[in-house]
Write a protein that binds this DNA or RNA. Structure first.
Length: 467
RNA sequence: GCGGGCGUAGCUUAGUGGUUUAAAGCGCUUCCCUGUCACGGAAGAGAUCGCCGGUUCAAAUCCGGUCGCCCGCGCCA
């Protein structure tokens, strides 16, 4: 018999069906047993009586989280027994046959709660059980809808989805890289990408005028509630665009996302308000101001663009000018001369989108003029030789006919956390890591065998304090 | 790297020097129960109080160290 989802039984009154799922609850009254059967679409009450002998015996054995299949007849409930709060509350399944497909140990924690009350350690260790709870099921499924929305919208507008490498080159700018030793080139390392930034720009040189990717970005830094070592970003880049083109695409994407998938949310500001970096800092003391009127309102969303970031900031430790966002952003300086004489006051074509006090997207127009790019790298302390060595491919590429281009990257995890009113992005990631970048379920990171090290031409220092 | 918090049955917590044989709720096991849906009733099992060491006649409780988790700062182009 074909499997019927619990949710669909409400349309199958009087029909014979087969349902499959997990035992979410069992109420044994002696001569009548009620089972709550949970599948990925809902929960259904199953009624088992001794008239169905086999079913009654098996139902008596069933415990929480056992996996079973049940054949029976869907029956409309009498009015007095209708459960209004339950999607399938108008029906129940009278079991003929119960088959146990898989038994289960008692779960280490309750699965019929929000889960907030349970220790993080246990939840992460048994993530495959934690994910069974309704709240996380909903979060992960809603996240999928959001990602699908972005993908569909961009494909409709002629964007091409392109995958870029995970094994790439370490970059001196920015966060620490996760490194991967090369077996075939002894003593050398790949780096996992902090973002597809350089690849997506090179795709513009390559003539893919509208690129996007749902890309993983990896940074070996300490996590926070809104930051993990790996996160997913909606990565977009376009050719022949100016600032308005990029900002209006971002605004349309996020606005339509909210209005079509989250109609209950109130978006303040149409169009999204814009502040320059200077205005934001002067007025709110932050470059990601929270413009909500009522921070208690779970459904209020306040998007705000922050534009015109300074191109550089002074890094006291490194004694050099550092890019505020990324070293490839286009500066607003008219000439190399202006750039070099006054780096402190040069603005860039960089913009962020903030939502309720969190940065949820950032982007820029990119520097496509060879002399300006070279000058910018020089200001950031890379000598001509170093720049050639580290960014040679970029410097070379801009000499082969580069369209003016720009784009952005939007954080998917953060966006989901805000839309779902979750306090931590772990709640919207299927398999998140701890505050120490550990995976408690897989026990990663882990040591490796001497053989593996040998193949990779690596040996470990005996004590961690050795320099 | 720094600061703060937490660690006691499967889970959530109470207990902060001795009336403790470490307590409660939920969960779990067994029995009873034909209309429950947080079912109900009865009985029961389950804890080297994170780990190591110290102080003390006596430590879950005080001290030192260590491990783990959470939050924040630094860091995160």
């Amino acid at each position: 018999m074909n499997r019927t989802y619990t949710q669909d039984t409400i349309k199958k009154g009087g029909k014979k069906v087969c349902v499959k799922g997990w035992v979410a609850g069992r109420r044994d009254h002696g001569k009548i047993i009620f089972l709550d059967l949970r599948d990925e679409r809902g929960v259904l009450q199953v009624v088992v009586t001794p008239q169905a002998n086999q079913a009654y015996e098996q139902a008596g054995r069933c415990r929480s989280e056992w996996v079973i299949e049940i054949e029976g007849t869907v029956q409309k409930r009498p009015d007095s027994m209708v459960q209004k709060d339950m999607a399938t509350g108008s029906v129940e399944l009278i079991a003929d046959q119960v088959n146990i497909l898989s038994e289960a140990k008692t779960p280490p924690f309750a699965l019929d709660t929000s889960g907030y009350e349970i220790g993080e350690e246990k939840r992460l260790q048994y993530r495959y059980l934690d994910l069974r709870r309704e709240r996380l099921q909903k979060n992960i499924r809603e996240r999928s809808r959001i990602v699908h929305f972005f993908r569909q919208k961009l494909l409709e507008q002629g964007f091409v989805e392109i995958e870029t490498p995970l094994l790439t080159k370490s970059t001196p700018e920015g966060a620490r890289d996760f490194l991967v030793p090369s077996r075939l080139s002894p003593g050398t390392f790949y780096a996992l990408p902090q973002s597809p930034q350089q690849y997506k720009q090179l795709l513009q040189v390559a003539g893919f005028e509208r690129y996007f990717q749902l890309a993983r970005a990896l940074r070996d830094e300490d996590p926070r509630g809104d930051r993990q070592a790996e996160h997913t970003q909606l990565d977009v880049e376009m050719s022949f665009v100016d600032r308005e083109d990029v900002l209006s695409l971002i605004e349309a994407l996020y606005r339509e996302l909210v209005s079509s998938l989250f109609p209950q949310k109130n978006m303040a500001g149409d169009p999204f308000p814009r502040l320059t970096y200077k205005e934001a800092m002067e007025k709110y003391g932050t470059d990601k101001p929270d413009l909500r009127k009522n921070k208690e309102d779970k459904d209020e969303l306040a998007f705000v663009f922050v534009t015109d970031f300074p191109a550089f900031e002074w890094d006291e430790k490194g004694k050099r000018w550092d890019a505020t966002h990324n070293p490839f952003s286009r500066s607003q300086a008219k000439s190399v001369e202006e750039l070099k004489t006054n780096p402190k006051n040069v603005l860039s074509h960089q913009y962020d989108l903030a939502l309720n006090g969190f940065e949820i997207a950032g982007g820029s127009l990119r520097e496509y003029r060879p002399d300006m790019l070279e000058a910018a790298l020089e200001i950031m302390g890379h000598s001509k030789e170093q720049a050639r060595e580290r960014f040679g491919h970029m410097l070379e590429a801009v000499e082969y006919g580069v369209p003016p281009h720009g784009g952005f990257a939007g954080g998917v995890d953060r966006l989901c956390a805000i839309l779902f009113n979750e306090p931590n992005i772990r709640e919207v990631i299927a398999f998140p890591k701890t505050g120490d970048n550990r995976d408690l379920m897989m026990q990663a990171p882990d040591s490796v065998s001497e053989d593996q090290l040998l193949e990779l031409h690596l040996s470990l220092r005996k004590n961690k304090n050795a320099s």
